Measured scan of single mutants.
Amino acid sequence: TFELKGKVGKVVKIAEDHYLVESEGDKWIAYSDEKLSLGDRVMVVDVDGLKLKVKRIP
């Protein structure tokens, strides 16, 4: 299986209740415990079905 946990991506869209993150050339629906901005670099900390939980990284 394709393992996304630990992968790095970038926030490419902000929606009302989720983010769109591009990682490894694909776009994924993501959510975070912190507020993210367009262009933020993020790391995948968990995968919930087809949704990614991400956190901001420097």
Results as ranks from 00 to 15, higher is better:
42 V>I: 14
10 K>D: 06
15 A>L: 10
10 K>R: 12
25 G>H: 04
44 V>R: 01
32 S>L: 02
39 G>D: 13
58 P>T: 10
1 T>P: 15
29 I>Q: 08
18 H>G: 12
35 K>G: 07
45 V>S: 04
42 V>E: 00
50 L>K: 07
36 L>N: 01
31 Y>W: 13
8 V>Q: 06
51 K>L: 14
23 S>H: 07
6 G>Q: 01
24 E>I: 04
3 E>K: 01
32 S>A: 11
7 K>F: 03
30 A>R: 00
3 E>N: 02
37 S>F: 12
41 R>G: 11
8 V>C: 11
33 D>K: 13
5 K>H: 14
17 D>C: 11
51 K>C: 13
41 R>S: 14
26 D>C: 14
53 K>R: 14
13 K>I: 08
33 D>N: 11
1 T>W: 15
57 I>H: 10
19 Y>K: 00
58 P>F: 14
27 K>L: 11
16 E>W: 12
26 D>P: 03
2 F>S: 15
46 D>V: 03
41 R>D: 13
32 S>H: 02
34 E>G: 08
57 I>N: 06
48 D>L: 13
40 D>F: 12
49 G>L: 07
9 G>I: 02
29 I>S: 10
31 Y>N: 12
23 S>M: 15
8 V>A: 05
29 I>Y: 13
36 L>G: 00
28 W>I: 05
58 P>D: 11
2 F>N: 15
34 E>R: 11
8 V>N: 04
48 D>N: 08
40 D>V: 13
7 K>A: 14
45 V>G: 03
51 K>W: 13
19 Y>N: 02
33 D>F: 13
24 E>L: 04
44 V>Q: 01
54 V>S: 01
45 V>R: 02
8 V>G: 03
29 I>H: 13
3 E>R: 01
37 S>W: 12
12 V>F: 10
2 F>R: 15
10 K>S: 08
52 L>I: 05
1 T>V: 14
13 K>T: 07
36 L>D: 00
51 K>H: 09
48 D>A: 06
11 V>Q: 00
30 A>H: 00
52 L>T: 02
11 V>A: 02
52 L>N: 02
7 K>P: 01
1 T>L: 14
44 V>A: 03
51 K>G: 10
49 G>V: 08
9 G>T: 04
22 E>M: 06
24 E>R: 01
5 K>I: 15
58 P>M: 11
33 D>P: 13
42 V>N: 00
16 E>G: 11
46 D>N: 03
14 I>G: 04
26 D>Y: 14
16 E>D: 09
54 V>I: 08
53 K>W: 14
35 K>P: 07
54 V>T: 02
43 M>R: 02
46 D>T: 03
6 G>N: 02
41 R>V: 09
9 G>C: 15
47 V>H: 04
10 K>G: 06
48 D>W: 13
3 E>I: 01
31 Y>F: 10
13 K>F: 10
26 D>S: 13
50 L>I: 09
40 D>R: 02
52 L>P: 04
31 Y>S: 06
39 G>K: 07
44 V>N: 02
31 Y>P: 00
36 L>H: 03
22 E>R: 07
51 K>M: 13
13 K>D: 11
30 A>E: 00
18 H>R: 12
30 A>S: 14
28 W>S: 02
19 Y>A: 07
23 S>N: 04
41 R>C: 14
30 A>Y: 00
14 I>V: 10
32 S>Y: 02
38 L>Y: 08
10 K>Q: 08
2 F>K: 15
23 S>R: 02
38 L>Q: 08
